[in-house]
Design a binder for these strands. Sequence first.
RNA 1: GCCCUCAUCGUCUAGUGGACUAGGACGUUGGCCUUUCAAGCCGAAAACAGGGAUUCGAAUUCCCUUGAGGGCACCA
Length: 497
Amino acid sequence: MKAESVRVRYAPSPTGYPHIGNIRTALFNWLFARHTGGRFIVRIEDTDQSRKVQGAVEAILDSLRWLGMDWDEGPGVGGDYGSYFQSERRDLYQQYAQQLLEGGQAYKCYCSSDRLTQMRAVMAERKESVRSYDRRCRDLSPAEQAQVETQGVAPVIRFKVPLDGQTTFHDLIRGDITFNNSELDDLVLLKSDGYPTYHLANIVDDHFMKVSHVMRADEWLSSTPRHVLLYGAFGWEAPLYAHLPMILGPDKSKLSKRHGATSVIEYRDTGYVPEAVVNFLALLGWALDDKTEIMSRDDLIKYFSLERISKTAAIFSQEKLYWMNGVYLRQIVEKQGFGEFARRALPFLELGLPDTAKRPIDQEYVNRIAPLMYERVNLLSELAERSGFFFVEELDYDAESLVVKGMDKEKAITSLKMCWERLEDCSFDHDALEGVLRSLTEELGLKTGSLFGLIRVAVTGRTASPPLFETMAVLGKDRCLGRIGAAIARLRGSGGL
RNA sequence: GCCCUCAUCGUCUAGUGGACUAGGACGUUGGCCUUUCAAGCCGAAAACAGGGAUUCGAAUUCCCUUGAGGGCACCA
């Protein structure tokens, strides 16, 4: 089949926040649609009443929006082939299940789930190959059927899979794949509550929504022959298939909740920027060439292609994403300036800074610390924990960290006193501070590292900070002198040193 | 148990019979820069799962073994 126009869909089921693997599938579909000028459809597969989670649809849409994946048809935007909620399309599925029933390609099954689980257990125990169903109801005579009907059992409708022959389909990524029909089971199409299973709903919707390419995770590969058979039964043309490599957890098993922070929203909330997440996810199972890694959204769209999707499952490792986020943070500064960086950082500061910091956080001030901090964080959330000294009045640190190498307590005290005096009428800009403090180093016979280290602790409360003079300039004279004074007092008050 | 898929550094990957003494990146590590921490720059260690076959020549083709993953629900 040749697709005239590309129509792809992301079809999540609303059972919670989509995890990284799931959203990677969405991204590949979206990139493919944008690359080809096709349509990106979002369809909510909410046919399992028991697994439905309140708010999950919004969570899914939020995730897409955050990453900038806009959809052409689906919730909120409508489209010519709606509804885009499967729960609102039950009549359609029932109608087509009925059609198969009448054509003798499906049958009603009255077996209880208890019977089925027991049956499977027995098979497993005997080490037989586990079948999902033994086809007991497949050839019920009309009389037998009438007999069970009287017992009032709500039946399911099962598909009559051909007993022999083979089903072959072409996968755009893996090539031709063949299954023996004898290994396929009579899958359920319509559940006893009247809702369709994934298999039925998926085929009916993809057909009527004119989906051209089905790009979904590898885990669907083994149900594809059933889907192909279904298309055949309806006399419909099957879409093109592309089964994407799976994303595995560090233990190499299918990525799931138990692997920790896997929902995209959690990444947003820990200070990852969407640009980095999109770039990183695009590289999980796809690569442009042997060198290119940092790619803008536009480049991703421009170069994305099915041919370059890899076949091998990828382990999701957070380290590289962490690095890449840092790259993007620096890129945001380079391309959009400190203001943009500050704007993005603000919510994280509001949330992460100690209560003693003055609220609301002043954006102008954040603007000034941005140049000092942006190279020192990889996550926006790290900003709060590393730049608290810019925002609070009282510093909290151990007196012993003031006694830096090459100095004893007394020397530290006298050095700080000297600093205080020299700084009192020094203008607080980088060059002036540097001039004064460098000459003081010589005077005191100290190494720059020692004196600057001492002042650093006094002024920031930590041994690692942005460059001293810029930091002091931002802090201002009052606060710096106050902190140096406090440091002296702290040293005097510490008996054991 | 049966079926399907996959197999290059620890991880993400490039590689489609000769340009491969296998390239890049993260991470690790050595160094430079330097007032600390970063950032940046330069360098290093690190992989074709194993065995056959095809070929003048295999990471690349075929077969087997092994390993890994996925599927075998009235879940998607």
